[in-house]
Amino acid sequence: MPISSVAVGNRDEVLHPSALKAALAEFISTLIFVFAGQGSGMAYARLTGDGPATPAGLVSAALAHAFALFVAVSVGANISGGHVNPAVTFGAFVGGNITLLRGLLYWAAQLLGSAAACLLLRFSTGGLATGTFALSSGVGVWNAFVLEIVMTFGLVYTVYATAIDPKKGTLGTIAPLAIGLVVGANILVGGAFDGASMNPAVSFGPALVSWSWESHWVYWAGPLVGGGLAGLVYELIFISHSHEQLPATDY
């Protein structure tokens, strides 16, 4: 059962050089991801004169985030696991795959990486606004809360299936691509409703730099609930229980 594997950790673990290197990797990976993803939105707004959102803008955002996350996960995978997302770290924690203290260290690195990316974007673009995640007209906070839960569940479930599951085999080689693609696909679904965050760090950086916190709790609560549920479901059903392989003729 995953609950038996959940651990707090200790101070020595957090201060170990490998943990600090992993945190630095999370900082850099998150910075890469947010800089490219958030920057693509700023570039599109600049090209369109801050006009209204369009289908082309949504597609460009989905592609930018998918490509950037593919790279960010790839470069961090061998050092920290390439979480790049507090919701992924939380999902790994509830499944017993990372200690609480190491997870908090990852969280700090991810949030700092996002904030640093947004500050660099603002400076390098001459002070352009980074923009923040917000609900579209007619979308309530509870609508967005459920949407974030479902999208993040799909994301963290994909992380478990392709990167964490010890039975993943050669599937692990495409984990960064699968993770990037599911985020891109979810942006095409939820981007027009609440921005499709799925990642508290991605929402935190722009909110901090712009100092705009309206409905910000949705972009924490939804992803953390969705990520936690995905971790529990995958650990309880697909990892913690052994399954006997059926003969090919029975499929």
Rank of each mutant, 00 (worst) to 15 (best):
39 G>H: 04
172 G>L: 08
156 V>K: 05
162 T>A: 14
13 E>Y: 04
73 V>W: 02
145 F>P: 06
215 S>P: 09
246 L>H: 11
231 G>W: 13
44 Y>E: 06
69 L>E: 00
122 R>P: 00
244 E>H: 13
50 D>K: 09
209 V>Q: 00
99 T>Q: 00
217 W>V: 08
251 Y>I: 14
139 V>L: 10
28 I>G: 13
212 S>E: 14
43 A>G: 09
236 L>T: 07
195 G>D: 04
26 E>A: 03
147 L>G: 05
146 V>K: 06
156 V>S: 01
243 H>N: 07
178 A>F: 09
214 E>C: 03
78 N>M: 14
146 V>N: 06
1 M>N: 13
115 A>W: 01
120 L>F: 12
184 G>Q: 05
79 I>Q: 13
198 M>Y: 08
1 M>E: 10
17 P>T: 03
148 E>L: 13
186 N>V: 06
186 N>Q: 03
221 A>N: 02
99 T>D: 00
3 I>K: 11
203 S>K: 02
71 V>W: 04
57 G>M: 07
114 S>Y: 02
174 I>D: 06
91 G>Y: 09
48 T>R: 05
84 V>C: 00
184 G>H: 11
151 M>I: 14
13 E>W: 03
82 G>K: 12
5 S>A: 07
18 S>I: 00
202 V>D: 00
246 L>M: 15
191 G>Y: 07
223 P>I: 12
93 F>H: 03
15 L>V: 12
17 P>A: 02
108 A>C: 13
57 G>H: 10
174 I>Y: 04
105 L>G: 06
